[in-house]
Amino acid sequence: MLTKRIIPCLDVKGGRVVKGVQFIGLRDAGDPVEIAEMYDQQGADELTFLDITASSDARDIIIDIVQRTADRVFMPLTVGGGIRSVEDVRRLLNAGADKISINTAAVDRPDFVREAAERFGSQCTVVAIDARRIPGEKRWEVFTHGGRKPTGLDVVEWAMLMESYGSGEILLTSMDCDGTKDGYDIELTRAVVDAVSIPVIASGGVGNLEHLYDGFTAAGASACLAASIFHYREYTIGQAKEYLRDKGVEVRL
């Protein structure tokens, strides 16, 4: 049967991997191609690059990184951050990306998601959603621009709409949990998983291996994204997978 995926996420700024804590306070964590190779050897199921500079000259830097990574590792590669046009998508796919993830541009112009899916296929069109809980409610609001801008959109409704526009996967980040190491927002993830038929990647908040287990079981995510627990070598991907296997989660080892 289909195994659950562990996806290390590399936030890239100015050609280096960094990791933000609740989107601020960056620390340098190394060379993206080297880190990608390390995760490849550890048995990561996919890799995600998130370009958090997202200016026009950064575009060329990330394309170069994608190209050099795809030359060396033979596993699925997703790239997100500042993707605004079909031409951006085409360039990244030609550089060796398998999937692109669209966030702010999807809110600005939802038809962009449809255009990307029709041109390149749903399988490579990921919609990334940054979600913040509405205080005291079991509802979440979509934020854009790296989590700075509220949109008034309901996260579950937005995810369903994006599925209908041809998105093949949802990358769901809890802004409340991101960087806390207290675990994924299980309620949020479960709500979106149950609302859509496409795979959902849980993101934001993982601090230990039990959090990954909860993401797959309690929240029902198809994949779990994590950054700092792997970047700072608290755990290897292999350790994470052995832990999950021992608890009865189907993983690739």
């Binding site: 289909l2 199921d45 198809s222």
Partner: peptide, 16 residues
């Protein structure tokens, strides 16, 4: 469904 979870489409990931 398998074990109470909906199977997602597309199938995305590693399988045997």
């Amino acid at each position: 469904t398998v074990a109470g979870e909906k199977l997602k489409v597309p199938q995305m990931g590693w399988n045997q």
